[in-house]
Design a protein around this nucleic acid. Structure first.
Lengths: 229, 229
DNA sequence: CCAAAAGTGTTAAAACTACACCCATGA
DNA sequence: TCATGGGTGTAGTTTTAACACTTTTGG
């Protein structure tokens, strides 16, 4: 399988920052490395890109192999190319990020507990390579994006409550939001469809479930959807 | 210089979309290709990444070599990885974009006219590879970005008038803006410093020149600057 | 004195913020 | 019946959008 090229070329990898909302906290999925370099240390899921796959395919494949997560919505984040970011040789990595688990999407179950784990974004361990930096950039992007785009929508499960959605926003933005104003605004967008069912999950009034109206979203997006917190 | 690796790896290139404002129109810089594939066709400036340089360095180098433009502000756009985007072999490209020339920055002069030329974004010729797509993505990004971030500021020349700035915004957004409201908003940001000089460039009232207050911008950006058209 | 772009305020409409109580359920 | 989170409207303030005339210069 060895290959010779006329000029040396950087190796190409993908890394994925998967965010999840666990009750209150925004968490990040990490994998414990088995091999050097940084053996035993925590790192983002990721690995080398094969010549017959796109970057997104590589990211999905590595995510599946290392964490069990399959078919989630990925967004390209940034391509990192610092010369010394990998001690072995020159490696350029394309980072992706994803947001999973609003409304009962149990993410823990799909990860192989032996090597994958979730950490609150505020309490990450020391990470391999420049992965701490990558997580920072992802977080920054997520926060920036959430303010003017209804993020999370592409990847929401079928039914969620407005409170869950509000908690997502509060966790990402790290700021409390007013319940009435949040509902007014988010319903005013016309992107949510009421479901027939309601969520009865405790000793309190059941909550209305909604789903995201993807078709309408696509239409509005083309005309320059405007949305803010 | 030939090199052998254990596994085949994609080649890595950079491509740059340079936008410029020429009076009314938003233009894109293109290079006529001398070598196959697509010899004789127009393409974005760009080329292979060397192992000892970062992507940004590669982009700057290629831009300098192919167009004479040096040291301009580049922003990473997206990394394109479609399997067949290059007919020769698997090539992944990291695209950058830049915006030059508000207020008398004469861009034409720095480009080697024999191979580089400007085209209005609405009238691009057929481009090599997937470069048409890359320009589309860049344009989309520029338009999206301009609405909530004071773009262009990092790369503005020392002195510019509010009308020039407004024209930039109008060209990028392809929509007319109200002069009074634009001025109110942009001055209200507190990011512009009046210069002593005024621009006397015609038989009409001279225009006040401003420069961008980069320090203040950096401060505000950290606190989550809010800006909209 | 004419042409051309620079510069300047006000008003009505819309959007945003702050805020407090009743509702439906399970225990 | 109590605890828990779900759900709802209004009023004051701020922000936005629309709009027209005067100023300064060069020819």
């Amino acid at each position: 399988m060895a290959q010779t090229y006329e000029y040396p070329r950087p190796a190409l990898t993908v890394d994925v920052v998967v965010f999840a909302l666990d009750d209150e906290d925004l968490q990040v999925m990490l994998i414990r490395r088995k091999l050097p370099p940084f053996a035993g240390q925590w790192a983002l899921p990721g690995g080398f890109v094969r010549v017959a796959e796109t970057l997104e395919e590589a990211a999905q494949r590595e995510l599946q192999e290392e964490s069990g997560l399959a078919g989630i919505f990925l967004e390209q984040l940034f391509t990192f190319s610092e010369i010394d970011r990998d001690p072995r040789e020159r490696v350029v990595t394309v980072a992706y990020y994803a947001l999973v688990n609003l409304a009962g999407h149990d993410v823990r179950a799909s990860a192989d507990a032996a090597q994958a784990a979730w950490f609150p974004v505020g309490e990450l361990p020391e990470l391999a390579f420049d992965h701490t930096r990558i997580v920072e950039v992802a977080l920054q992007r997520l926060r920036g994006k959430v303010r003017y785009q209804p993020i999370g929508f592409e990847l929401l499960p079928a039914g969620f409550t407005l409170s869950q959605m509000q908690h997502l926003y509060e966790a990402v933005l790290e700021t409390p939001l007013d319940k009435r104003n949040f509902r007014k605004k988010v319903l005013g967008l016309g992107l949510l469809l009421r479901l027939k069912e309601r969520q009865m999950d405790g000793r309190h009034r059941p909550a209305q479930l909604y789903r995201f109206d993807a078709q309408r979203y696509e239409k509005l997006k083309k005309r320059g959807l405007h949305f803010e917190v």
